[in-house]
């Protein structure tokens, strides 16, 4: 496939195929797109993301949020404003999209849209800069990471974060389950995300 196929629609399909076809239970997948900022520095910015959610939530046994009532109100307020921005209508207190509790992993995914990594910073930056996957399993390893985003992920309930470099960026996957390194997953990323080859 040529670079022309690299668009929002195919990205979404590829992220979805990666997560839904995996044996492991991934909570989300994000593609960090490589580009350059105005000073010429290498930047990984938001390309697209697919949020699947936590399996535990549907089983009713999982901890979906550790947030206080005030934090929930804040999250819902932000979602209401974002929804209004997207739909072009005034914020509504009874919008279906925001009435539901905003889980920790949903919030982490949303906040991700505002993030970027410059010159090899963070797990994604390291993976891209060194052309080597970064696989972090376990809350203790996430807490001990030098990457702010990894520590933040642990706070929001993640137990695994993975960054796999591709031709034009980095595929990041996160899970609330401990998942150990899988060559099968890395091979899938190479096939699905190496647009230039």
């Amino acid at each position: 496939p040529s670079v022309a196929l690299f668009n929002q629609e195919t990205l979404q399909q590829r992220l979805q195929a990666l997560i839904e076809g995996a044996r492991e239970s991934w909570t989300y997948a994000i593609f960090w797109q490589s580009s350059y900022d105005y000073s010429g520095a290498s930047v990984l910015g938001w390309g697209d993301g697919y949020y699947k959610g936590d399996d535990d939530k549907s089983k009713g046994k999982g901890k979906t949020t550790t947030s206080s009532a005030a934090e929930q109100e804040h999250r819902k307020k932000v979602l209401r404003e974002l929804n209004s921005l997207i739909s072009g209508s005034a914020p509504s207190a009874t919008d279906e999209a925001v009435d539901e509790e905003v889980t920790d992993t949903e919030w982490f995914f949303l906040v991700s849209m505002t993030q970027s990594f410059v010159n090899g910073m963070g797990l994604a930056g390291q993976a891209f800069f060194n052309s080597t996957p970064v696989w972090v399993t376990g809350a203790d390893r996430l807490v001990g990471s030098t990457c702010d985003r990894a520590r933040q992920g642990q706070v929001f309930g993640l137990q695994t974060m993975v960054c796999i470099p591709s031709a034009n960026g980095v595929v990041e996957l996160g899970s609330t389950e401990p998942i150990f390194q899988s060559s099968d997953l890395m091979q899938k990323v190479r096939v699905l995300f190496n647009f230039d080859s």
Binding site: G47, D48, D99
Partner: peptide
């Protein structure tokens, strides 16, 4: 970099739409 805000907007719209669908089917 100019493509990033558009990508975020599309992703956000999709995320909110999926939340809405989940809320309505619950």
């Amino acid at each position: 970099p100019s493509a990033v805000p558009q990508a975020r907007k599309a992703s956000l719209a999709r995320f909110l739409e999926k939340r809405k669908e989940r809320a309505m089917s619950a």
